[in-house]
Simulated assay, not measured.
Amino acid sequence: MKKRNFSLFDVINGSILAIICLIVLYPLVFVISASISNPAEVVSGNMWLWPVDITLYGYERVFSNSDILTGYTNTIIYTTVGTAINVAMTILAAYPLARPNFPGRNIIMALIVFTMFFGGGLIPTYMVVRELGMTNTMWALIIPNAVSVYNIIIMRTYFQSSIPGELLEAAEIDGSADFRNLFQIVLPLSIPIIAVMVLFYAVGHWNSYFSALIYLTDRSLYPLQLFMREILIQGQMEEMINPADTSHSETIMNEEAVKYAIIVVANLPIFLLYPFLQKYFVKGVMIGALKG
């Protein structure tokens, strides 16, 4: 093995990165530990990193609340359906724009990019959604954001830089049409960028709450984030606990346990998904930064 001489820069840079890593990881570890610790120890400050007097009270309350389970189910549906539509629309938009023989592609791309900087605003968008009859339906959360211009640019750049044009030309000489080229040649070679798009869109759908706040009034359609907003911001934790059975101080401590448990439960799917797609995520960001 080659011996490497560490310079002063390497030592300083490594130390700074280690400190930043600890700063980023501490809140995550703290929230997870607090969610399974005795609320009294958390409120008193005795728990500052590792769990103390482990209890699952918060998780019991979360999963016994029907609103949380309804929101969780709705969010999974919205994320799955929305991500599938997003990725399909992005591919169908990016592929022709990446083909050099597609007529008018520069004009079309300019019009698409134009929408990144100029939009109608919230009120006109709401009026369009209402006139289309999509209010109080899941489509109000999916159709208005069916495609992202930024993601089209990233995917188009990937097609242009990573798919050899000679490969598609050879397929066309053999009689292959554009759809066949897309599904049998381009997509199998584009797994990394597709994974990036899935991560981008899925995280966006999972964390989204503003569209639901605007377009939904039926609580049975609320995503998880809206119920979290009610609990964490509007202080509606009384729905999960029975104040008559506890003192005021105990009620506050129970609310703390529920709060941390909700944060963990709400972010668990993203925590599980991200490690598998991290390398594709970094690659996708680099494609957009260096070649876009």
Rank of each mutant, 00 (worst) to 15 (best):
K3C: 08
N5W: 07
I16K: 06
A18L: 15
I20D: 00
L22S: 06
L25V: 12
Y26F: 14
Y26C: 03
P27C: 13
F30L: 14
V31D: 08
I32A: 15
A34C: 13
N38E: 15
N38L: 12
P39S: 08
E41S: 14
E41V: 11
S44M: 11
G45Y: 12
L49Y: 11
V62M: 02
F63E: 07
F63R: 03
S64Q: 14
S66N: 12
L69R: 05
T79Y: 03
T83Y: 01
M89G: 00
A93S: 12
A94Q: 03
A94W: 00
Y95I: 07
R99E: 05
N101K: 11
I107W: 09
F114Q: 10
G120Y: 05
V128Y: 04
V129R: 00
M134Y: 05
I143K: 07
N151E: 13
N151H: 09
N151A: 09
I152F: 01
I152N: 05
I153V: 15
Y158C: 08
F159C: 04
S161Q: 13
I163M: 08
P164G: 09
E166D: 14
L168Q: 12
E169W: 05
E169H: 05
A171R: 06
E172D: 10
D178T: 12
R180F: 06
R180D: 12
I185L: 15
V186K: 02
S190F: 00
I193F: 03
L199K: 02
Y201H: 11
G204Q: 07
H205A: 06
W206Q: 03
W206M: 02
Y209R: 01
F210P: 08
L213V: 02
I214L: 15
D218P: 01
S220D: 14
L221E: 05
Y222C: 02
L224V: 05
Q225P: 03
Q225Y: 07
M228N: 10
I231T: 10
E238T: 09
E238F: 03
E239Y: 06
N242C: 02
P243R: 04
A244E: 15
T246C: 04
S249G: 07
N254M: 13
E256Q: 12
I263F: 02
A266H: 00
N267M: 14
P275D: 06
F276Q: 08
F276M: 13
Q278Y: 08
Q278D: 01
Y280H: 14
K283A: 13
K283E: 13
I287N: 03
G292H: 11
G292Y: 10
